[in-house]
């Protein structure tokens, strides 16, 4: 038997028995090295599913899979009503909906962005809210005067110590998004931290910033600069190779729903 710290790999790959996994998780609570290693493994592998070539699933697979799930559900627990008619008609309904979606909701220029939404969601553990400017260096966030805070959220990320808060502030006639972050990993070269506001899976640039030597960074972004307004679902911060990413290229470090 090897000691707990040697189990990270087998834990990550799901090879521990339930009992072993529990013991490891208990160990994990107190072992920062293991937490760090696990976090790193997750981060470093998070985008690897995208290495799969997209393959069109067989047409009948959906029905088979859902039938199997619902049947298993009936035998394992309550849920007595098996409704064949309903499920087949709803399959049709979904197909129609899907076809419609493809036709209506997705103008050609939008498609890469929508797909980026999927990728975005895969790459990131955290989502968040608002928007910032491309002002580079650390900036003192304008949190003074009689500005009114409209909404404030805490961004979080899995397996990172970094933290951030985002606040939407009303300054007279204008709304500003203010993001402050701390405990950030150091950046290299042209890398920046980019703030994204997400609406319907679509990310909008909302300012970028660099971290200082203390790992702190902040940015204020005038909401008037945004090409879209309205209902933001989430805010996120990602690390980007440079300040020009139109969609998130790097890992999402932190996020929050709005």
């Amino acid at each position: 038997m090897y000691k707990e710290c040697e189990k990270v790999i087998d834990y990550f790959n799901g090879h521990l028995t339930e009992q072993e996994a529990q013991a490891f998780e208990a160990h994990l609570e107190t072992c920062e090295d293991c937490q760090e290693e696990l976090r790193e493994l997750r981060e470093l592998t998070e985008h690897l599913p995208l290495a799969s070539e997209p393959v069109e699933p067989p047409a009948e697979m959906k029905q088979n899979v859902l039938d199997a799930a619902f049947t298993a559900g009936e035998t394992t627990d309550e849920e007595p009503e098996a409704n064949e008619d309903k499920s087949s008609s709803s399959v049709d309904r979904y197909k129609e909906k899907q076809a419609e979606k493809r036709k209506l909701d997705k103008p050609a220029w939008l498609m890469p962005v929508l797909a980026a939404g999927l990728i975005f969601s895969l790459m990131g553990n955290m989502y968040a809210v608002f928007q910032t400017t491309q002002s580079d260096e650390d900036e003192a966030p304008p949190v003074e005067s009689t500005d009114e805070v409209l909404q404030r959220v805490q961004l979080q990320g899995e397996g990172t110590n970094a933290n951030a808060t985002a606040a939407m502030i009303n300054q007279g006639t204008e709304d500003m998004l203010v993001v402050q972050a701390g405990s950030l990993d150091p950046l290299q070269g042209d890398e920046v931290y980019q703030v994204w506001l997400i609406n319907d899976d679509q990310p909008y640039r909302a300012g970028s910033f660099k971290s200082n030597q203390q790992g702190e960074g902040a940015v204020a972004y005038s909401m008037a600069q945004l090409q879209s307004e309205g209902d933001w679902d989430a805010i996120a911060i990602s690390k980007e190779p440079n300040a020009n990413s139109e969609t998130p290229q790097g890992e999402v470090m932190m996020s929050s729903e709005l």
Binding site: L50, P54, V55, E56, R102, M111, A115
Partner: peptide, 17 residues
């Protein structure tokens, strides 16, 4: 066999892949 490459909403996934 791969799916119809014309499906544009897969463009980003393909690129990343």
């Amino acid at each position: 066999e791969e799916q119809d490459p014309s499906t544009e909403d897969l463009a980003e996934w393909r690129e990343q892949g």
